[in-house]
Amino acid sequence: MFELTMAKGSILQGVLEAILDLVNVANVDCSSKGFSLQALDTEHVVFLSLFFPSEVFRSYRCDEDCSMGIAIADMVDLLRASNDGDIITIKVTDQNFEDITITFESPDKTKTTDMDLQLVDARSHRLKISEWHDMESEYQAIFCMPSAQFMLNCKSLSVIDDDVVIRVNEEVISFSTKGKSGCVNISHVPNKTDNPEKASVTLTHMRGPVSLTLNLRYMKSCAKVSTLFDQVKIGLSTKLPLMVECKIAEKGYIRYFVAPKITE
């Protein structure tokens, strides 16, 4: 049996809302440690991997590991029907592995709404990626910045063109674009520390200058999720997809991997 409860408007609900513009269907794996989800965007440019540790939920129980495909858009639609103050329960019983049950309970416990959502096949959304601690060392540059700043950069650049070039070296982190109507270049002088301050842009890992071109549509989507958190961490490599990460509590995360554009 798997069962988690959360208050309406909790972080999981916020994140599911925010990933909807890229993701329809997701693979969800539940274990005693927590709730993880993997999904590909419809054009297969972005891979999303998130993990919510059990302690971020109001209550969490998972007797046996389980894996299921969920139509996220339908689930979010159902969750939207809850009222302020409701406690939301998501449950899968061992006897029935064809759907999940979502329950809303009003704060005064006088009203309960039960809904069943059919599970779907989402196995094609599963990709093979290395353990994060092995992968992190492959990134040439990793920096952190306030999420609001990241969103602002993406918005300012998308006025001019569809693509952004992110360049990182020891002295500067820049976001730039060039279009028919002009160009924009936003430069940040980074701090260099392992303990980034919330308000600043910090270069945490630097193994050599790197620059990548990315479609702003995907970057804006990443930025949207990141604004649910104070800080966003961005990793660049010439051999791996761009990584955009937000931390959830001590051990949790949301990671977007975005395939950069390549010049032939």
């Binding site: 440019v45 990709l127 395939a259």
Partner: peptide
């Protein structure tokens, strides 16, 4: 302009 590869160019199917 530059081309957009898919993410499966980096990560294989599980």
């Amino acid at each position: 302009g530059p081309k957009q590869p898919t993410i499966t160019n980096y990560f294989g199917r599980a």
